[in-house]
Design a protein around this nucleic acid. Structure first.
Lengths: 125, 125
DNA sequence: CAGGATCCTATCCGATACTG
DNA sequence: CAGTATCGGATAGGATCCTG
């Protein structure tokens, strides 16, 4: 069981040790599930958004973290970035195929949590 | 569109502003997608595990973070905890219904990422 | 508008030591 | 075995200022 839990076989002989620290997939998972990555991906699920639209959609995010998060997601191939070199410049972000593929279960996760929780607020501390 | 993005209506008149900082659901999402929360939930998806089994399943986790993560997940109602008051004591952790409900899309997310990525390792900087 | 650069603080988290 | 307590370094992340 030790094996079954931490190893996902990809091909016979090839093993994907996602629970290992030096695994690429683990990095991507970490990025996707990062504090702000989740919300960026969910925000972009329906349509592409401008930078400031994202900032306003995601309550509490700072410009620094937004651009930082976006940069990582673009690097991972989850989000595309398009620059319109006008003045003022317009930059639009949207989900790639990979991003949409990832966003779906994320959205599902998100939905299951919200429908499950009552709308009461309690101090979590 | 501004509205549509950040508000998920639950009932007519009732709104669930998950993108807001003071939202309970947001806290749960944060816990689920926390650095170690993901791996704990995925590890427990098939069967319950003892503390040390979890520690050995999840490569790189410290005892401190494991117990801390577990405590939060138990509080959120995603994980149950059972103590067998023997010597030495045995503590077992498993997924509640809610936890299993959440673990599914998490598992899906995880699968889609691993199957998408080639088994090459690259330095992520 | 879309960010980069800087500074500074809160927290995360690992290491170590100790307990029932 | 299954933790808690404490310490200290690393990192995340907010605030502010600046630029094309």
């Amino acid at each position: 069981m030790d094996e079954g839990v931490q190893v996902t076989p990809v091909e016979p002989g090839l093993r994907y040790e996602v629970f290992h620290t030096d695994c690429l997939a683990r990095d991507v998972v970490d990025h996707v599930t990062s504090r702000w990555g989740v919300w960026v991906l969910i925000s972009l699920r329906t349509n592409a958004l401008r930078f400031y639209e994202l900032r306003e959609s995601i309550h509490g995010i700072s410009e620094k973290m937004l651009s930082q998060t976006l940069r990582v997601l673009v690097q991972d191939g989850l989000v595309w970035r398009e620059v319109e070199p006008t003045t003022p410049p317009q930059v639009t972000y949207g989900l790639t195929d990979f991003g949409r593929e990832i966003g779906e279960p994320l959205r599902e996760l998100f939905d299951r949590i919200t429908t499950r929780l009552p709308q009461e607020y309690k101090p979590v501390s």
